[in-house]
């Protein structure tokens, strides 16, 4: 059929079909590639207000004492998560470049040993780019034995280059129960304690 009226400079059907199928497979892959691409894109632009999962280097630049920025803390627990979770202070006022430590208090109100993971979200998203955490409980899974209470520290500073139009930054942590999916070494540490 394909040779019905093929002329020499036209590719035959098989080749075209193969190429189109490659495009299809490629686009299917691209759909999944959008996931890491989106993450990278958000990391660069602060699109979705996520903060980095890695500890930032300690600030070596001068503190900009000419201005102060409000950093508000909001804590939430996911449904089905019977922990109490509060920031020690609701808000701190910091100069860009100044390092602060804020403690978050948690209580495991159940009779079971549990593991939690805190997920951060920053608003405005753009501000997330300038929030550098040198130490954070959110970098790791947090085990807590039944009935225990603890203070989880978060140490941060704002990049001195934070744009002048940002006066307030809100950092929210949501605590999720990940006991079922906790990594084995976290569970082992908890049992050892």
């Amino acid at each position: 059929m394909s040779d019905h009226q093929s002329t020499p400079n036209r590719p035959d059907n098989g080749r075209v079909v193969k190429r189109l199928l490659l495009v299809v497979v490629g686009m299917f892959g691209f759909g999944f590639a959008l996931v890491p691409l989106y993450e990278v894109f958000c990391e660069i632009t602060g699109f979705n207000g996520r903060t980095s999962n890695e500890a930032a280097a300690v600030n070596t630049r001068a503190v900009d004492t000419s201005r102060s920025i409000n950093v508000q803390f909001i804590t939430r627990v996911n449904q089905g998560m019977p922990w109490d979770f509060q920031p020690e202070v609701k808000m701190v006022r910091v100069h860009p470049g100044e390092t602060k430590v804020v403690n978050f208090l948690v209580e495991n109100r159940t009779g079971n040993n549990m593991v939690a993971q805190a997920i951060p979200s920053v608003s405005p998203g753009e501000a997330g780019l300038y929030l550098n955490k040198t130490e954070c409980f959110c970098f790791e899974q947090q085990p807590l034995a039944a009935g225990d209470t603890t203070a989880m520290p978060m140490q941060f500073y704002l990049d001195p280059e934070i744009p002048a139009h940002i006066h307030t930054l809100t950092l929210q942590y949501t605590l999720y129960d990940i006991t079922a999916n906790a990594t084995p070494d976290v569970l082992a540490t908890m049992l050892a304690n």
Partner: peptide, 11 residues
């Protein structure tokens, strides 16, 4: 169609 139907399949 061949560009976006595979993306829907991915979704």
């Amino acid at each position: 169609l061949i560009a976006v139907m595979p993306v829907l399949a991915g979704a």
